[in-house]
Simulated assay, not measured.
Amino acid sequence: MSKNITITYELSPPADTPAPSLDKSRTLDFAVPEKTELKAYYSGVREAIEKARNAVGEELTVWRDAVGSRELTREPKVVKKDDDEDDGEEDDEEE
Score class of each variant (00 low, 15 high):
E85M: 04
E47G: 03
V56A: 15
I5H: 00
P33L: 07
Y9G: 01
T8R: 15
D84P: 00
Y42P: 00
S21A: 10
D23L: 09
S2G: 01
D23R: 15
T61I: 09
T6I: 09
S43N: 07
L60F: 08
T8V: 08
I7T: 03
P20G: 10
I7Y: 01
T6R: 12
L72D: 14
L38Y: 08
R74Q: 15
V45F: 06
E59H: 15
T8N: 07
E95S: 11
N4V: 06
V62F: 05
V67S: 13
D83M: 10
M1C: 06
F30M: 00
S2V: 10
T6N: 04
D87V: 11
P20D: 08
E94R: 14
P14G: 07
S2D: 05
P13R: 10
K35D: 00
Y41D: 04
D91L: 05
T73M: 08
R26Q: 11
I5Y: 02
F30C: 00
A19D: 04
V62E: 14
G57L: 12
P20V: 05
A31E: 14
E89N: 14
A66S: 13
V67M: 10
E47S: 11
A31K: 15
L60M: 14
E93T: 12
K80E: 09
L72Q: 07
M1Q: 02
S2W: 06
T8Y: 11
V62C: 07
I7D: 01
E94L: 13
G88D: 13
L11H: 00
T36A: 05
P76E: 15
I7G: 00
S12K: 14
P13K: 14
R74N: 05
P76I: 09
K39E: 08
E89V: 11
V78D: 04
E37H: 00
V45D: 00
A19W: 06
D92C: 10
E89G: 04
E50L: 01
E85S: 04
K81P: 04
V45A: 02
D65M: 11
D92V: 08
L38K: 09
E34V: 09
D91K: 14
D83R: 13
K3S: 09
I7N: 03
V62S: 14
P76C: 06
S21F: 10
P33K: 12
G57A: 10
E10M: 06
I49Y: 11
T61H: 15
G88A: 09
V32T: 04
M1T: 10
V45Q: 02
E90A: 12
E50V: 01
S25N: 06
E71L: 11
T8H: 13
A31T: 12
E34G: 05
E58C: 02
R74I: 05
T17M: 04
